[in-house]
């Protein structure tokens, strides 16, 4: 009994003197592990393990999930954006495609019924924006129906290469609502060379034509460029902005991002669940951590699309855990 009491005094002295979040090893000898656990719980610390008579304790107060998430700006809160991979097939075969989409890729469509349900459930659980992406969504001949259903609930963006606005698909585009909808068209460079190098000959000009068509039809157009590290210097970037200025694309509607080392890309930025702020992403195969890795098992959250609220909660919980862990790693990793 006295031994246990001494252990408790040692715990107060050692853990109490540590910095919040620090992992503190404390000799507990043969003391009752349950007693150590109860003390930690009562004092707001976390018992991580007891090995060979040494308890390792995370010094509290340990921020709860809400406190961790409060550090993230409102617009980037996990669970506010809902990405849906409407299909996976594409009319292009970009060599850096993170989703491994191409004309040869099998169509894996979520379908209008499930998309409607996903958006409805998402809207009830904190989702404020919907992003529809492909492959190429305009390959789907019911995309206008899907878009109308989404826009009826939430502001929606459709990601497209902008190359298919002809004939029936142009009529489909024209049937889409203007309010609450944006088209995000991929354009990588100010001139055809870089863009066509990765996306195929002639694709730059057709994307440019697509941007003009969408603008002429009264749509809000965002432009997203995917750039290899070192491929775009200051002059190239300035020329790109000059082109977009001429096209009437608002500065806030321009996204320039690096190639991710995912999918077809051999090089690029390494992205993991620990390093990404999650954006809940649904494909026909499951719910994923982030759209950049929607075809990768390491970022699969669950195979169950429904209820979507469960997946969103799981993403938020895991994100808070990763953040707490990374804070701790930063505190304990020193080189000298």
């Amino acid at each position: 009994m006295v031994g246990d009491a001494r252990t408790l005094v040692d715990l107060v002295a050692r853990v109490g003197a540590a910095a919040a979040g620090e992992r503190v090893p404390v000799q507990v000898g043969d003391s009752d592990p349950e007693l150590v656990g109860r003390w930690c719980e009562r004092a707001g610390h976390r018992l991580l393990r007891i090995d060979d008579g040494v308890a390792v304790i995370m010094r509290g107060p340990i921020p709860d999930d809400d406190a961790v998430l409060a550090e993230i700006p409102p617009e980037r809160q996990p669970g506010t954006r809902l990405w849906i991979y409407t299909n996976f097939d594409c009319n292009l075969a970009c060599d850096y495609c993170c989703a491994r989409s191409s004309p040869q890729a099998e169509r894996r469509a979520v379908g209008p019924e499930r998309i409607r349900r996903l958006v409805a459930e998402g809207a009830e659980h904190g989702v404020t924006e919907v992003y529809l992406t492909g492959g190429e969504p305009f390959l789907l001949l019911d995309l206008d129906e899907i878009v109308r259903d989404c826009v009826a609930r939430l502001p929606t963006t459709v990601l497209t290469n902008g190359m298919l606005f002809r004939g029936r698909r142009l009529r489909m585009l024209r049937a889409m609502p203007r309010d609450g909808l944006a088209l995000q068209i991929s354009l990588d460079s100010a001139t055809p060379d870089l863009h066509d190098l990765h996306r195929g000959a002639g694709s730059w000009q057709r994307a440019l034509d697509g941007i003009r068509t969408a603008r002429d039809e009264g749509f809000r157009v965002r432009v997203a460029a995917t750039v290899s590290p070192g491929a775009a210097g200051t002059d190239e970037t300035a020329a790109f902005h000059g082109l977009l200025d001429g096209l009437g694309i608002e500065r806030a509607d321009r996204v320039i991002r690096p190639v991710a080392q995912r999918g077809f890309a051999d090089d690029g930025v390494t992205l993991t669940v620990e390093s990404l702020v999650p954006e809940v992403t649904v494909t026909a195969d499951g719910v994923y951590w982030h759209p950049v890795a929607a075809d990768h098992a390491d970022q699969l959250v669950t195979r169950d699309l429904f209820p979507l609220a469960d997946a969103i909660d799981e993403v938020r919980r895991r994100f808070a855990d990763y953040r707490r862990e990374s804070e701790l790693a930063a505190q304990r990793f020193t080189c000298a």
């Binding site: 246990d4 009491a5 408790l8 107060v12 003390w39």
Partner: peptide, 13 residues
């Protein structure tokens, strides 16, 4: 209270 008052070790203190 940090020690656990006499709840955690009623047989000691």
């Amino acid at each position: 209270e940090a020690i656990g008052s006499d709840e955690l070790m009623p047989d000691a203190l």
